[in-house]
Amino acid sequence: MLTNRPLTIVVGSGGVGKTTLAAAAALESARQGLDTLVMTFDPSLRLKDTLGVGDAARDREVEVRAGTRGKLVASLLDARATFDRLVRRYAPDEAAVRRILENRLYSHLSGTLAGVLEYMAVERLFEVATEGRYDRIVLDTPPTRQAIDFLEAPQRITGFLESGALRVALKPWFAPDGRLRVTRRLGFVGRSVEGFFDRLVGLSLLRDMAEFFLAFGPLYSGFHDRAQAVSRLLTSGQTAFVLVTRPEEERVPETLFFARRLVESGHQLGAVVVNMVHPLFDSGADDEGDRLFAWLGERDARGVARFRALLTRHQVLDVPLLPDPPADLAALDTLRALLVERAA
């Protein structure tokens, strides 16, 4: 169901029901007898209530009492903790670790730099996958504005961290130890670009940035190798993506775009789930609500038909809108059964 690969990555824009579907897919996997881990960055931490694991699962793996043949384990990921762990792993010594973790920019960067969360999600997936403790891992990706951001983010962040460009550009201002030079060599180019930057943002920010990148220096090669390994894993036969969307017309272009990009970049797209579909409805009555539900049913049926017509090379599963979003294991199991039925 959804995928038969050891690694399943659930992607889609915000508000499409990724987290709940990831949990339902993991539940089915555990029922089939596979030891399964479901990982999420769900910022509202709602999954912990649905699975009944509580805050204990914050950045740790906690077994869900689901009574399945295989183990079902949940982990609620924390981007900052993952980033800190990476720094610790690749920094040459404790002094280097401290220099980075105590840098004024690091706390901002690790929280706000575009793509950090997404990169940390695949990073964590790689960590756990390498350890081989599970038969299957289901990763629920962070809510992005557009699904495509997830694919591009890791390159952006590693490109940013690895690129020597900034270090080189900042070099004329700083001595090798990261301290500000007292005198600067300023040629014409220096005056136009760097002199301007000095005026634009001031030296204290530039000093912080230079320090950050100098501190990161010894980690570059580690990050680089790691990013390549992560990228290989994501395009390997072990990994499949599940793309979640909704039936509204305005979702069609970005869903198609993302499906195409996934495949073009060598990834395996397992299934496209069209979630929260209103059923067709004809009550015979003509109240305001009857007209609304008839309209919603037709709109969503048209949307699903459109996805099926346009995504002929992928399995398109339509999942009906549930009366209430699943809030406990029993309700999650209902969704799981629905998914199995639609996939059959």
């Binding site: 730099l113 940013f160 460009a165 634009l200 940035m209």
Partner: peptide, 27 residues
Amino acid sequence: DHLRVDALVRRVTKSAIYKHFIDAAPG
């Protein structure tokens, strides 16, 4: 607004330091 000369504006905005700076400076 601060440079006024097109050639210099292009020079700054095309430079690696500018691109990374825009990405990196929080907020």
